[in-house]
């Protein structure tokens, strides 16, 4: 059975939600891996949860990038295995240099907690193969620093390589090019501000998020 690692830092607060989404809804195996672990052997995918790792001290994700587990996460990325960072997880992946750009304060200063309509720009990735091309979905966002920024060259590269996977339909936070989620150039590392794990059962208001995890699972099953 496919096994997901859910990495937990001091201050992570979506780790249990992710664990629940994988085990109860996706019906796959998951284990919470502490930030002190230096080994991700036996895992087929890594999930970096949302929250406020290390209290967001210095900058969001700036301290987490030096946690012992991050060396193993970098090796995992280099091996081409899937890594999904959500919200603070996205911030950590940019700080760690696994994804380009950075997440700034929201344009209007507020912390925004709303369901947000998104466009799936690229369904040819291991994270989005269960979506239709150009599909509009709704996922909740909950962040104060989700305003994606990168320089012009990086943006051109993101566009040319179809690395902008999700974009906002009604840009809530000032993100460059309405960016809500991007992959690395190899396509095995995805960072996104919206929370798919908060949209896996109808009681949560929608199930669009489940397709992200189903895509990862389907891709895995095709390759084993």
């Amino acid at each position: 059975m496919m096994k997901f690692a859910v990495v937990s830092f001091p201050g992570s607060n979506c780790d249990e939600d992710l664990y629940y989404a994988i085990t109860d809804d996706l019906k796959a195996d998951a284990e919470i891996v502490p930030h002190t672990s230096d080994n991700l052997e036996g895992f087929d995918a890594v999930l970096i949860p949302g929250g406020f790792s290390y209290g967001d001290y210095l900058r969001s994700g700036a301290i987490a990038k030096f946690a012992p587990v991050m060396a193993a996460v970098k090796e995992f990325a280099k091996a081409g295995k899937p890594i999904l960072g959500i919200c603070n997880g996205f911030q950590i992946l940019t700080e760690a240099g696994l994804l380009p750009g950075t997440l700034q304060h929201n344009r209007e200063m507020q912390f925004i907690c709303e369901p947000e309509p998104l466009m799936v720009n690229n369904n040819q990735t291991l994270f989005t193969s269960a979506f239709k091309a150009g599909e509009t979905i709704t996922l909740p966002i909950a962040h104060g620093e989700g305003n994606y920024y990168c320089d012009d060259d990086t943006l051109a590269q993101l566009k040319a390589n179809h690395q902008i996977i999700f974009s906002y339909q009604d840009n809530p936070n000032g993100s460059l090019s309405d960016i809500a989620g991007i992959t690395n150039q190899a396509g095995n590392v995805l960072g996104m501000m919206p929370h798919p794990e908060r949209a896996v059962e109808s009681i949560q208001g929608g199930t669009d998020g489940l397709k992200v995890f189903q895509s990862i699972l389907q891709t895995y099953l095709r390759t084993v």
Partner: peptide
């Protein structure tokens, strides 16, 4: 390495 994020 730590105090500044060169992106911003």
């Amino acid at each position: 390495q730590l105090l500044a994020n060169p992106n911003m």
